[in-house]
Design a protein around this nucleic acid. Structure first.
Length: 184
DNA sequence: AACGGGATGGTT
DNA sequence: ACCATCCCGTTG
C-alpha cells in the first residue's frame, strides 16, 4: 500500500481553503517484525485507530509537530503508511501562508511540513479518508502513469528496525525529502 | 508525579 | 552536528 499510495492525491478542505498535493513519498510501518511501528509495541488509546479498518487517518504528535498516516491492511492488524511528502497541486498561496515560506520545495516536503501546509492536526485523527470532506485521498496518477519510477530505501529518522527498506518515493521528484542520494 | 525517548526540522 | 520542544507510555 505504501507503494500504491504514490501518485494518489491528498486533499484537505477547511472552510474556503482547499489544498491538494500528489503523494510522492511514503513509509510503511508493519505490525509484525517492525519495532518502529507504534502498533507493534503498544495497543493504547493513541494507537487504537491503527487496529481499526483501513482508510482511516492516524495522526500523532511528535517533537511538537504532527505526522499523518493512512491505516492499511485488515481489521485488527495494526498497520499504517506514513505520508512523508506531497507535490503541491492547488492551494499553494494557502500553504505558503501556513508555512511562512514561499519556496515550493519547502512547502510540503517532510511529514510535519506537509501537515502544517495542509492543516492536518489532531482533529484529523480517525477521519475516514475515503469518504471525508475535510481530508480525503483521491485516485491520482496511480501506477498507470509509466513515467513514475518508484524506488525504495531505508526509512528516514528511524532508529529501530533501521535496515528495512520500507520507504518508497517517486525517483527524481524534487518534492521528495532527504539528501540527493535518497531522492534519485 | 517524574522520567526518557522519539516516524522532526530549522539552524550552524 | 546541534537542539528546541512536547506528548505519551512507563516506572515508581
Amino acid at each position: 500500500m505504501a507503494r500504491e499510495l504514490i501518485g494518489k492525491r491528498l486533499v484537505t478542505q477547511t472552510g474556503d481553503q482547499l489544498t491538494a498535493g500528489w503523494i510522492v513519498e511514503t513509509e510503511a510501518y508493519l505490525p509484525v517484525g517492525d519495532s518502529a511501528c507504534h502498533a507493534s509495541k503498544y495497543r493504547t488509546p493513541r494507537t487504537e485507530v491503527m487496529f481499526g479498518p483501513a482508510g482511516f487517518a492516524y495522526v500523532y504528535p511528535i517533537h511538537g509537530r504532527y505526522c499523518f498516516n493512512v491505516v492499511t491492511e485488515q481489521l485488527g492488524k495494526g498497520c499504517a503508511v506514513l505520508i512523508r511528502s506531497v507535490e503541491p497541486i492547488s492551494g499553494i498561496p494557502v500553504m505558503q501562508g501556513r508555512r511562512g515560506v514561499d519556496d515550493l520545495r519547502r512547502l510540503s516536503t517532510g511529514p510535519s511540513c506537509l501537515c502544517q501546509a495542509m492543516k492536518i492536526d489532531r482533529t484529523v485523527n480517525q477521519n475516514d479518508l475515503t469518504t471525508g470532506i475535510s481530508v480525503r485521498i483521491e485516485e491520482g496518477l496511480g501506477l498507470k502513469n509509466a513515467t513514475i519510477t518508484i524506488k525504495s530505501s531505508v526509512r528516514i529518522g528511524v532508529t529501530s528496525a533501521k535496515t528495512r527498506r520500507l520507504r518508497y518515493y517517486a525517483a527524481g521528484n524534487q518534492f521528495v525529502s532527504g539528501p540527493l542520494s535518497l531522492r534519485t
